[in-house]
Design a protein around this nucleic acid. Sequence first.
DNA 1: TTGTATGCGTTATCAC
DNA 2: GTGATAACGCATACAA
Lengths: 345, 345
Amino acid sequence: MTAPEKGARFVSSADVARLAGVSRSAVSRAFTPGGCVSPPTRARILAAAEKLGYRVNRLARILHQDRSDLVGVVGANFANPYISAQFDALSAELHRRNLQCLLLNTAGMAESSELVRLLDYRVRTVVLLSGAAPDRLMRLCAANGARMVLINRPAPPKGALADLILADSAAGGRLAAGRLAAAGCRHVAVVVSGSRTSAKRVRARAFCDEMTARGIPVTRWEKGPNSYQTGIDAARALLAGPGIDGIFGVTDEIALGVLNTARFELGLAVPGELSVIGFDDAPISDWSSHRLTTIRQSLPALTRATMEAIERPADAPPNRSDIPVELVERSSVAPARYKRRTDRT
Amino acid sequence: MTAPEKGARFVSSADVARLAGVSRSAVSRAFTPGGCVSPPTRARILAAAEKLGYRVNRLARILHQDRSDLVGVVGANFANPYISAQFDALSAELHRRNLQCLLLNTAGMAESSELVRLLDYRVRTVVLLSGAAPDRLMRLCAANGARMVLINRPAPPKGALADLILADSAAGGRLAAGRLAAAGCRHVAVVVSGSRTSAKRVRARAFCDEMTARGIPVTRWEKGPNSYQTGIDAARALLAGPGIDGIFGVTDEIALGVLNTARFELGLAVPGELSVIGFDDAPISDWSSHRLTTIRQSLPALTRATMEAIERPADAPPNRSDIPVELVERSSVAPARYKRRTDRT
DNA sequence: TTGTATGCGTTATCAC
DNA sequence: GTGATAACGCATACAA
């Protein structure tokens, strides 16, 4: 092992070759799975590499082979209970397949157009966990032959080279509406995060439509981001006076803000006086402190579909996979008064 | 904009040069902050680049300049409420400083030695959020002149080239002990995650020592990982019979598992019959559904120290920064019976 | 089996 | 201001 040196550059195959008394190609071959090297030299090379602390420079390899194992993952709000679980599963799975995760947290960017920076690192695929796909990014990916995977994002304008992973937001919204209706709610509200374009709006829209079809009035709250605080704010405003007896939070985090504020700040009995339903089925929603009834988008299914999309060959046609959604009964919604209608999907 | 082509490689500066009728060097200069290009040609180049969807290949730039803006971040358990918040803040801050985050989730690796793979991408710095630093990684970083930043990790054996960020775990453990003692607890327990080596053990150790010094017996529970489920298991076992009236979870997630199990499964009044205290001050600990009394390691302070370490020049001497810790009073611990002793630190 | 030569996309140096 | 050229570290086709 060499002593640490100041400003030292990374040790290269040339260094190893020198020490082992071979050529650089020999070193390269020794580190290439199918490389032809005689056992003795191979051993010498490996020993030298170990001694020097050599690691193959994959940047150079990518450059040469024009084939990258870097996957760009862009997201925001990684502290969100569902997103963090989703990201944890995805990143673990990426490494299991020997892919590297180059992460971009859009919260750190001034403009959303900044995220094309991922392409500067020759990622083979860009995965979008949240936020809308900027046109610019889509164009650049197309021009450079990089694939895109959009998770719960609206479909891109053209038939762009993007794989779509979509939980059935509309069905989820209807499920939520049906459940609150079955609980006997007479006047409900939906709390949407203010993000301009996303699956969350579809959830809310479907909820409203279904409620309208059932003749139940619905109030819409649409201020603030996808956060716990938004749930708090919404609950305070919506529950100031009597009237509303059911609330759908388009996200578990929002719904939990509503739930906790109703229970502990406003002193409302949930589900006695108010029913609350969420969307996601984040791990903490099942905690006994919450027991939030919610619409589940299965995390394993979502992760599986994402990995399939990522591993699709570069020239595969765009694909779309739908993740089914299901109602998870817990105890934040009043028991159904009548036998629940079959969902109309 | 070119049409998307199958198997297309990324567009290069040569492509742009060809279209703009200039040399590759001109293109390079047009994209270099201080580059000398006449306004007209510059405009032509930029137009050509935009048309083709060109982006500078930073892999090649790193290769040539021997200076990387890649920061390797290794961690696990990103669904943990504190870790996810920490990671969210860190990744956002990285991008704000124009650094890229190459993430490694050790949950996806067979062996911990696998994480040296980060060095294959010529990261300038490796940040360790969890897990121990394998010797191999430390050696390779040293040999290649890459810096390491260890967050709440035990100090490396030698005076290796690693920056240390350490919350005062010992003081935190003592604080927790003091608070439970003040609550009048007579027999307490500590729930440690089974990880072999980490700050969590120091927290538990200091807690035990302080309790012993006060003559209060402490039971130690040490099975399972750092998870909510571990808190559940511990609570079920520890609270099966009467006796224990105070529990310290070395992590908020663990403590919340204890708290919820005690309250909702075992029907214990918290803090009436049992006091529970955690460590971290994760965002959800402040939720009204929990109101967990805990030891805070300030996230902003932690992030600030981490960024300072990351931005230190490559040849700076190893540094150590200590993050103070403080007791956050909420309502999972019985009120202090006597005026609380000043902590002995 | 092994070494030589070439090219990947960039930037820096050097002429012009 | 501009273009040719070398070099970064690697993998490969080819020659030995």
